[in-house]
Amino acid sequence: TTQFTVHSPEQAEQWKEYAKQKGLEVHVQKKNGTWHVTIH
């Protein structure tokens, strides 16, 4: 599991796309103005 924080919805979307291409599961949670992205 990879977990990191991004600071814009655009970055979060890019990671979603990346994960989809790799066939991975991605979870994005918005918290205090940042987005926590978890890739399984």
Rank of each mutant, 00 (worst) to 15 (best):
V6W: 03
K22L: 14
K31M: 13
G33A: 04
A12I: 08
F4Y: 07
T2N: 07
W35L: 04
T1N: 07
T1G: 09
G33D: 09
Q14F: 15
E25N: 10
T38R: 05
H27D: 10
Y18L: 05
W15I: 08
S8M: 04
P9N: 11
K16Y: 11
H27T: 14
A12Q: 02
F4C: 10
K20V: 08
T34D: 07
H27L: 09
A19Y: 11
H40A: 09
G23L: 04
H36S: 08
K16F: 09
A19S: 04
T2K: 12
W35Y: 10
H7E: 12
P9F: 15
A19M: 05
H40R: 11
L24E: 02
Q11F: 05
Q21V: 09
H40L: 13
A12Y: 05
K16Q: 09
A19I: 03
Q11S: 08
V6K: 01
E13Y: 08
Q29D: 08
I39L: 10
L24T: 02
N32P: 03
Q21K: 12
K16M: 13
G33R: 04
E10K: 07
K22Y: 13
Q14G: 07
K20F: 09
V6I: 05
S8G: 06
K22R: 14
V28T: 03
A19H: 02
H36T: 14
L24D: 02
E13I: 07
Q29W: 12
E10S: 06
N32V: 03
K20R: 13
W15D: 00
E10W: 10
V6Y: 03
K30F: 15
P9G: 10
T38F: 08
T38A: 04
H27V: 11
Q11K: 07
Q21E: 10
E13W: 09
W35I: 04
E10T: 06
K22H: 14
Q29N: 08
E25W: 12
K20Y: 09
E13K: 09
A12G: 03
H36L: 15
Q11I: 12
Q3M: 11
E10M: 07
T5Q: 10
V6C: 05
I39Y: 02
K31F: 12
E10Y: 09
H27S: 11
N32H: 07
F4V: 07
H7R: 08
P9L: 15
Q29Y: 12
W15P: 00
Q11L: 13
H36R: 10
V26P: 01
Q3Y: 14
E10A: 08
Q29S: 11
N32A: 06
Y18H: 03
Q14K: 13
E10F: 08
Q3F: 11
P9V: 14
H36K: 07
N32C: 11
H27W: 09
S8W: 05
V6A: 05
S8N: 06
